[in-house]
Design a protein around this nucleic acid. Structure first.
Length: 962
RNA sequence: GCGAGGGUAGCCAAGCCUGGCCAAAGGCGAAGGACUCAAGAUCCUUUCCCGAAGGGGUUCCCAGGUUCAAAUCCUGGCCCUCGCACCA
């Protein structure tokens, strides 16, 4: 891996040191200046910063730098996030000596001897924020570090802020309590979080439907994930060799497995064991199936797993591979049937009923998939699992209920599923049972189940009034890019109550019930407000305990007086007033920028909670979103092993280059790609710009048309770049002010024989430096200093557009010159001639006359050949040329038909083509490497053996190469 | 399936809203040349096909349609990416 050019590194370190020394980015309220407050979600501190965060952060930094140059007092703070499970889990893993976790740390370059210290949570919360801060500083971040902080109760001031916020939310009715299923260890009597599991990471509670089959005054209870398949029930399965229980559940007598009864106990049901019953006893009987109300036989099978569901299964052989194979086995096993006193003829009458139609499948998908996979026996568990998975997911997403499904016929399965379940529950034919989506074993080696806790706290995002208010807030916001608006609107509608407390993890305890810890996303919704006062809360001379609710109420909500808040809290009145001033000045934030993955949770929560906590004038003004970073063409992810640490890429290429490559990778909602090859080549280009600015150049004082052209380009570039910057179209801006402008400069130099006008050179360097500052601030500072400026370009004024410099005619003329060179080259290429001389024939006076007339007539409206000729023939001069006139006019009018109005206008301007060519002969000769002659096509004595001169037209001269 | 965003030359990507000098910007890669003892760097040129004259042909996921004119507008397909939660 090539390392960054030492000169670039040196430049970066030099300017970073100077920025720090001069506290350039420290921001304090200053009512005499307009403010701009920008921030990004704090990154999570379980490792070094990734390039993905780097990209998101960069867009905010670019905006901060741009606004600073536009005269704003800019606040760009940055804190670090430690709340939640990951840090805790990682520290625990280190303590246990977990090899994978130790490898992760070792791969980060942390010395082996230091790794054991990471078993302490506080090591993480100090080490990584420190590292992140250094990484960002070396990235050229224009952050006010006086306001940095970490989250969780490890930061008592922030902790008090979160507590205040939750008390307020509760007081205002935005927090509510309710039932919630959690994976639960019956031995430990507590929830089993992912990292506390011996087995079953990622498994979640799922709700099964319990179907109730009336049988001898009791109910046989079967569990299913597919209530919509009740229309295809043919029989019921029980395990004859198992013992079931009869229990009174909420007043009814249910027959089920013992484990099912125990699960129900944890789930807020009233359960009482009555007696045991052998499965064998049920076999051979009949019971009434729910929904379809038909008598179906109770049959024996051995495929039932007593730990899952209820130990009783309803049979839908059309759509459940297990059921089909079980049925088939039973029909073929006369001995088994006989043993259970079953009538084989009766069994053979049982036929699967098609109930769901799905594209790509026949009417009986279970049978189809079993045949396809060659499943013959219930012992082929793996194949059966796959078969089930296939049928289930196809059915769920693409299935439609058939005509025999009553009022659900024609409904999509995804929709029918819930409706059917609801209807059966209402009719008393069904109930529900929570179960883990897969087996979960607690660390204590106990099998976990699902418990429904009844005191779970929620943020009431499902509340219609709150949604409405949040929608209003959204409609007033600026979004970058605006295309995310639809997504936001959709998310606001879809969000439901959010479980905002946990039993484990780092964070702030729920103020009114300290058994709970506030969940990580929930405590991070309005902390942008905290940034405005963070530097004041961090004062070590003041006890954080003086940050009472009265203080926050006054500072953030303007309630009460500062004196009163001071008296109650014991916090000096001046600091309270200063906090209030900072908040009032900076809030709301103008832009919060993040990756698009946060739209549907964090960004939406942020908006919700702002409307709950603050008056309308303090609601967020703008959100920005970018895509997921790809490394080359591969999406970055830890599991794929393609993840880059910000520090590493900076070390490799240098901060400015990484910034350029990151901002250049993509804009809008596209996933930006970080292109290493681009980064590798970008440093050279940047250095050569610095060198160019530092060198002395031969200049001239004389003013040429060409200089007007370049000024036009320069000022148009300023205008377009500034517009792109405002809309956060950063890649577009880089293209305009960096790549395009420098290319134009190269052309300009070629055109004036390498000797630029002195004023133009100065203006170019001056404007270019300021335009690129937000992207490559270190290089820009270096150039700024080298070109004799005092102070920092980081705080210089953004270039202003001189509208009078923008000159479309000059740019048209230059384009013409460019086109001419291209044309000659094309001819040389096609003919293979090595040119000794190029003759350029300009159009004769009469053609120019025709051309002008054609422009006029085209500008007026549809240019008809007839009208044109009538007009042209009135001129005696043209009448004399009538033969050539018609052909020429035809061609000209044709070409003009496709031109936009402004293009036509330009052609009407009286630019002197011949004079331009004559002035440019030297340039053309260097460019083409041979002699160049410019002649009037109808001048006497021309040398034109190939009869090319006749092709000449205005702005399209004839060319003869020899 | 639902919601959102996409499909443009070897790759990345602009253009699409507001149809017309669009064979379609720019970057990367590649090829040739200049410079150099040489390499690197830099600069120049080329990079859909055909062409000994600036031209012609076929293109912007596919199939239709609207229009004098479609990468751009409309209809219908196909394909890709992300999200679908109580987790950062």
């Amino acid at each position: 891996m090539p390392s960054v050019d030492p000169r670039l590194r040196q430049i970066e370190e030099k300017w970073q040191a100077r920025w720090t020394a001069s506290e350039l980015f420290k921001a304090r309220a200053d009512p005499s200046r307009p403010k701009y407050f920008v921030n990004v979600p704090y990154p999570y501190m379980n490792g070094y910063l990734h390039i993905g965060f780097g990209v998101t952060f960069l867009h905010a930094d670019i905006m901060a730098r741009f606004k600073r140059m536009r005269g704003h007092n800019v606040l760009f703070p940055q804190a670090f996030h430690c709340t939640g499970m990951p840090v805790l889990a990682a520290a625990n893993l280190v303590a246990e000596g977990n090899p994978a976790q130790i490898k992760i740390l070792a791969d980060m370059g942390i010395p082996e001897s230091e790794i054991p210290s990471f078993s302490d949570i506080q090591k993480w919360t100090r080490f990584f924020p420190d590292a992140a801060r250094k990484d960002l500083a070396s990235y050229g971040a224009s952050v006010d570090w006086t306001r940095t902080f970490i989250t969780t109760s490890l930061n008592p001031a922030y902790d008090r802020f979160v507590r205040w916020q939750f008390r307020k939310l509760r007081e205002r009715g935005f927090v509510k309590t309710g039932k919630h299923p959690v994976i639960w260890c019956p031995k430990d009597q507590q929830p089993v979080a992912d990292h506390d599991r011996y087995e079953g990471e990622g498994e979640i509670p799922v709700e099964l439907t319990l179907l109730k089959f009336p049988w001898r005054g009791k109910f046989l209870v079967a569990a299913t994930l597919r209530p919509e398949t009740v229309f295809g029930q043919t029989n019921l399965w029980v395990d004859p060799d198992s013992t079931y229980v009869v229990a009174r559940v909420d007043g009814e007598e249910w027959v089920m497995s013992r484990s099912a009864m125990e699960k129900l106990r944890e789930q807020d049901r009233h359960v009482e064991l009555l007696e045991e019953v052998r499965g064998e006893l049920m076999v051979g009987g009949k019971c009434e199936a729910p929904m379809i109300h038909r008598q179906i036989p109770i049959l024996p099978t051995r495929f039932i797993d007593q730990t899952k569901g209820t130990g009783i299964v309803t049979s839908v052989p059309s759509d459940a591979p297990d059921d089909w194979i079980a049925l088939k086995t039973l029909r073929e096993d006369a001995e088994y049937a006989h043993r259970h006193a079953l009538n084989l003829d009766e069994l053979r009458k049982i036929e699967p009923t098609p109930i769901i139609r799905m594209e790509g499948w026949g009417p009986l998908p279970a049978i189809e998939i079993c045949e396809k996979l060659g499943i013959k026996s219930l012992d082929e568990r793996e194949k059966l699992e796959k078969a089930k998975e296939d049928v289930y997911s196809s059915g769920f997403y693409r299935g439609v209920m058939l005509e025999n499904c009553g009022r659900f016929a024609g409904m999509h399965v995804a929709e029918a599923k819930d409706e059917i379940k609801r209807e059966m529950i209402q009719a008393g034919e069904a109930s529900t049972l929570w179960e883990a989506s897969g087996e979960v074993i607690c660390r204590c080696r106990t099998r976990a189940s699902v418990k429904v806790v009844s005191d779970q706290w929620f943020l009431a995002y499902g509340d219609p009034d709150w949604k409405k208010k949040t929608g209003d807030a959204l409609s007033q916001m600026t979004l970058h890019p605006d295309t995310v608006r639809k997504q936001f609107e959709h998310v606001l509608g879809w969000l439901n109550d959010w479980a905002c407390t946990h039993h484990a993890g780092l964070g702030t305890k729920l103020p009114w019930d300290e058994r709970w810890v506030i969940e990580s996303l929930s405590d991070s919704t309005i902390y942008m407000a905290y940034y405005t006062i963070a530097h004041l809360t961090a004062n070590p001379a003041l006890d954080p305990a003086t940050l009472t609710d009265e203080v926050f109420n006054h500072v953030f909500l303007g309630e009460g007086s500062s004196e009163e808040a001071s008296r109650i809290s014991g916090r000096p009145v001046e600091t309270i007033e200063e906090m209030r001033r900072e908040f009032e000045y900076w809030y709301p934030f103008d832009l919060r920028h993040s990756g698009k993955d946060l739209v549907q949770n964090h960004m939406a929560f942020c908006l919700f909670n702002h409307t709950a906590m603050f008056p309308e004038k303090h609601w967020p003004r703008g959100f920005g979103v970018n895509g997921f970073v790809k490394i080359g063409h591969v999406r970055m992810s830890k599991s794929h092993g393609v993840a880059l640490y910000l520090r590493d890429v900076i070390r490799e290429h240098g901060a400015d280059v990484v910034r350029l490559a990151s901002a250049q990778g993509g804009e809008g909602l596209d996933d930006p790609s970080y292109d290493d090859e681009f980064a590798a080549s970008a440093g050279k280009k940047l250095l050569s710009l610095i060198d160019y600015a530092k060198e002395h150049h031969e200049t001239r004082g004389e003013w040429r048309e060409l200089d007007a052209w370049f000024r036009s380009v320069l000022h148009r570039t300023i205008r377009l770049t500034a517009k792109a910057m405002e809309g956060m179209w950063h890649r577009t801006a880089i293209r305009l002010c960096y790549f395009d402008l420098q290319r134009q400069w190269t052309w300009y130099l070629k055109r004036c024989g390498g000797v630029p006008n002195a004023d133009i050179l100065r203006e170019f360097l001056d404007v270019e430096t300021r335009l690129i500052t937000p992207f490559v601030p270190h290089a820009a500072e270096e150039i700024w200093e080298a070109t004799g400026h005092k102070g920092f370009v980081s705080t210089a004024q953004y270039p202003e557009v001189d509208v009078s410099a923008i000159n479309a005619a000059a740019e048209f003329a230059e384009e013409y010159m460019h086109q001419l060179v291209e044309d000659v080259r094309e001819i040389i290429k096609v003919t293979g001639i090595t040119p000794r001389r190029v003759t350029i024939f300009t159009a004769p006076a009469w053609k120019r006359r025709v051309y002008e007339m054609a422009v006029d007539i085209s500008l007026r409206g549809k240019a008809e050949m007839g009208d044109f000729m009538r007009e042209a023939l009135q001129s005696p001069e043209l009448k004399a040329k009538s033969k050539e006139l018609a052909a020429f006019a035809q061609k000209i009018l044709e070409s003009m038909r496709k031109m936009a109005h402004e293009n036509l206008e330009l052609r009407r301007k009286t630019l002197d083509e011949t004079a331009m060519l004559r002035e440019s002969i030297k340039f053309l000769e260097t460019e083409l490497g041979c002699a160049v002659v410019v002649l009037d096509a109808e001048a006497p004595d021309i040398v034109d053996p190939k009869k090319k001169a006749g092709q000449s037209a205005p702005w399209k001269p004839a060319i003869f190469v020899e």
